[in-house]
Design a protein around this nucleic acid. Structure first.
Length: 297
DNA sequence: ACTATGTCCTGCGAGC
DNA sequence: TGCTCGCAGGACATAG
């Protein structure tokens, strides 16, 4: 399941391969829920567009496009998403630097992947979109379980703060007064964006905090440990090219390596790497949750 | 306003 | 061997 490190790995691979290229034509599949904009609108926005940049916001991939001359008509602005309660209004620049351009937004969901292939490569089952590039290659979106989504917009904004950008004080503030389990809070993209089930479990293990602890009950010392643990885990995972569990591969079809570094995720019943106690598996927020009952309090 | 839960979707592995 | 069943989970809708 692509979380921040996997999406970042994909972003880097994509940026290397498609920035500067142009989209000649687009094929979109017949699964309507994959497309959050009308398919015709996506096709119009993409066809002829020049790829300026590939960025990441949380788990979203943002492909910045300069529309073709023919299609300069502006897309509707992104609907204003409800602001998280404690989010401060960022100083008033409306839309941001690229508001003038078009953005192709892709969320990979659980099993989504993006591949840059030659035009004659076999088309995998569950391929939902293909963009023909001027270089002769194709950018393909494949997603067996169809939790992934794509759409086009301008001035894409999303709630939550990047866990690798936030400072420690703001991090601590996010959890203040919350009764929900800390694991649930970590998965809430409106608070922090980019953490998913794997890295939430791994971060809590490194911080020595039980997943069911009420978020608001964490001491400042624990929050400091958690802040550092998250940064450490994400940084290491990005360096390893992400974790390959089930369907994850980067744009070249290469798996990540971080799964060998998992200390609790997917290790229910096995011995804790630190103390040897059996790792417990419980369900929190409807998600499989793994922790060491001795190391995590 | 916050929190918890059900829903979507397919592949895979366990069990018989 | 071949079948059924249950599980995996990110984001969103809905209910409490």
């Amino acid at each position: 399941m692509p979380e921040l490190p996997e999406v970042e790995t994909i972003r880097r691979g994509l940026a290397q391969r498609i920035v500067g290229d142009r989209i000649n034509s687009v094929w979109l599949g017949d699964k309507p829920q994959t497309f959050k904009s009308p398919p015709q609108e996506i096709a119009t926005a993409l066809e002829g567009a020049h790829v300026c940049d590939v960025r990441r916001m949380g788990k979203h991939i943002v492909i910045d496009l300069r529309p073709s001359k023919r299609n300069q008509r502006r897309l509707p602005e992104a609907p204003l998403e409800r602001q998280p309660v404690r989010a401060k209004r960022a100083g008033g620049k409306p839309g941001g630097a690229s508001a003038a351009g078009t953005q192709w937004i892709i969320h990979l969901g659980m099993t989504g992947s993006l591949q840059v292939t030659s035009a004659d490569a076999d088309i995998l089952k569950h391929t939902h979109a293909i963009a023909d590039l001027a270089s002769g290659r194709q950018l393909r979106f494949v997603d067996p379980r169809r939790f992934g989504r794509m759409w086009v917009t301008s001035g894409f904004e999303t709630c939550g703060t990047e866990p690798l950008h936030i400072n420690e004080d703001d991090f601590a503030r996010i959890f203040h007064g919350r009764a929900t389990p800390i694991k649930s809070a970590l998965l809430n993209q409106k608070l922090l964006r980019g953490l998913g089930n794997i890295y939430a479990d791994e971060s809590l293990f490194r911080a020595g905090i039980r997943p069911r602890r009420r978020a608001g009950s964490l001491t400042r010392q624990e929050l400091t440990r958690l802040y550092k643990a998250i940064r450490e885990v994400l940084t290491e995972a990005i360096a390893a090219g992400g974790s390959s569990i089930s369907d994850y591969f980067d744009v070249e079809g290469e798996p990540g390596l971080f799964q060998t570094q998992h200390r609790v995720y997917g290790r229910g019943g096995e011995a804790c790497v630190r103390c040897g106690t059996a790792i417990k598996r419980i369900v929190v927020a409807g998600r499989g949750t793994h922790y060491c009952p001795k190391c995590q309090r």
